[in-house]
């Protein structure tokens, strides 16, 4: 099953990954191969089977409401590609 390039473009947009025009056919084909593999699932009868998001039937343990984290801004900001005045900088966000 091939995936058309329009679908690939839509997925790339949702996933915010630039895919060059030259490679889009290659990506479409590979993606088609993978989807063909996973399409085997469609033949399985799963009526009444509860989906399983976690391998073990454990339940969440909650954390006490305490402030445990100190200010480490300077350490974290050092990792940022661009920052100023304690802020992370990005190209202007337009609403």
């Amino acid at each position: 099953m091939a995936v058309d390039s329009q679908t690939v473009e839509k997925l790339a947009e949702l996933a915010r990954i630039a895919i060059s025009a030259e490679t889009i056919d290659e990506v479409s084909n590979r993606l088609g191969d993978v989807l063909q593999l996973v399409d085997q699932l469609q033949a399985v009868h799963t009526e009444g089977v509860a989906p399983m998001a976690h391998p073990l039937d454990e339940v969440q343990v909650l954390r006490a409401d305490q402030v445990t984290e100190a200010d480490r801004r300077e350490e974290f900001l050092q990792l940022a590609p661009q920052s100023e005045a304690g802020l992370y900088l990005v190209p202007k966000v337009i609403d």
Partner: peptide
């Protein structure tokens, strides 16, 4: 439903 949910159901069958 066709992919993610189905796969999680199959996951239970495998378990």
């Amino acid at each position: 439903d066709a992919y993610y949910n189905k796969a999680q159901q199959v996951r239970r069958l495998i378990k």
